[in-house]
Amino acid sequence: MTIKRFSRAVIKAISKTEFDIKKTYQIERSIKNFKVPLLMHIYKRWNYKVYTGNREILTRVFNPKSGEPENTIIFFHGGGWVTETIDSYNNVCKHLSKHTNCIVISVEYRLAPEHPFPQGLEDCYAVAKLAHDKQKEENLLPGKIILMGDSAGGNLAAAVSLRARDRGEFKVDTQILLYPATYWDHSMISPFDSIRENGTGYILTAKRVCDYMTLYKRNDKDLMNPYFAPLMAGDFSNQPKTLLITAEFDPLRDEGEEYGKRLSEAGNEVKMYRMKDALHGFISLGQYNVFVRKTYGLINTFLNERDESCTKDKH
């Protein structure tokens, strides 16, 4: 299946209207996080605060509607570390919980540029550490604890896993990375062909990714930090069992797949799948979308350790 000609024309037309995110991020943030008061009242009942040091981190917990939850997913949302929040990811997390029969804990990490790297990462790490500590001490959470994120959230999940290994404070056993950002250079001289192939005309442009990176970093030294760009890690060993899903028409496709390759070469168990015909951000398309439903299936297969259908598409 390929993107139909009309759909491709619409996507390219939308992509041509590209605003400077460095100047408009606050407006975009407001639009994406428009709240319906009644729904926010309902979701507020599911909010829990994690306290660490002198700050509090908001989390939102989603439970499956029926049956006992099998596992616990700690979810880090996308949005280039800049624009999205747990409010804009309510439906993603609610449907993820429903279709995987897992508790999903969505994390409201601090956003750039007001809170640049590594502040958002520190929030994600604190929640993950608390969850693992509680599981070890009191067995409060069901099943396995899985770190999961999409795009910038996939970057954060990978960074938390690396940091947990390096600090030795807890061990991440499982992670699910959806089209993660893993490298620092998204210019046309990037080592990854998907930047040149998909960097224009597919809504998320290479320029936009560069702008997000500019807003997220403190200075250029951050670019070489493996917690900022996980592909810069010198050691990929002792990392979690990983499911890594990329999108065919995504500028981040190749760097995500390269990260999976590095993890595998270092002896970790890695399952990779390239979602054919998909664009970056497809997990937000709704629970009945073909790509989203396929993702639920891949996650359930992965978590139940039935590996035979979780192979990378040929391309």
Rank of each mutant, 00 (worst) to 15 (best):
Y227H: 03
V270L: 08
D277P: 03
P230L: 02
N238W: 00
K221S: 09
M213S: 06
M213P: 01
L223E: 13
Y212M: 10
Y259L: 08
P240R: 04
Y212R: 06
Y212C: 12
L223R: 08
M224G: 09
L215F: 09
A233W: 06
A247Y: 10
M232F: 10
D254Q: 09
K261D: 12
E265S: 11
L263I: 09
T242M: 06
R218H: 06
E248V: 12
A247N: 11
P226L: 00
F228S: 03
E248H: 10
R253I: 02
D222L: 04
L263M: 15
D235I: 00
G260I: 05
D235R: 02
K271A: 14
K221E: 15
F249N: 14
N268E: 04
L223A: 06
M224K: 15
E265P: 03
L223Q: 08
A266N: 06
K217L: 00
N268Q: 05
E265D: 15
Y212P: 03
A229I: 00
L263P: 03
N225A: 04
D254G: 12
R218I: 03
L231G: 05
S237V: 03
Y259C: 07
A247P: 09
F236M: 15
N238Y: 01
N238P: 00
Y273I: 12
Y216H: 14
K241V: 03
R253H: 11
A266I: 07
F228T: 05
A229V: 01
S237G: 11
D254V: 09
M232A: 11
Q239Y: 02
M275G: 06
A233L: 02
M213Q: 12
L243S: 10
K276M: 13
T242C: 08
L231A: 07
D235F: 02
Y212W: 15
R253A: 03
Y273A: 08
M275T: 07
G234N: 13
N268D: 05
E248G: 10
M275V: 07
N238D: 15
Y259A: 06
D235S: 03
E269G: 00
A247L: 07
M272V: 10
D277C: 13
R262C: 09
L223G: 01
A233H: 03
P226E: 02
E257D: 15
K276T: 12
G260P: 08
A247C: 13
A229D: 00
E257F: 13
D250P: 11
R262T: 05
R274G: 13
E269K: 15
K217M: 10
P226D: 00
K276A: 14
P240N: 05
E265G: 02
N219R: 11
R262N: 08
E257K: 11
N219M: 09
M272K: 14
K271G: 07
K217W: 00
E255I: 06
P230E: 04
K261Q: 13
P230V: 02
Y227W: 02
E248N: 10
T242F: 02
K261I: 11
M213R: 12
L263D: 04
Y216M: 10
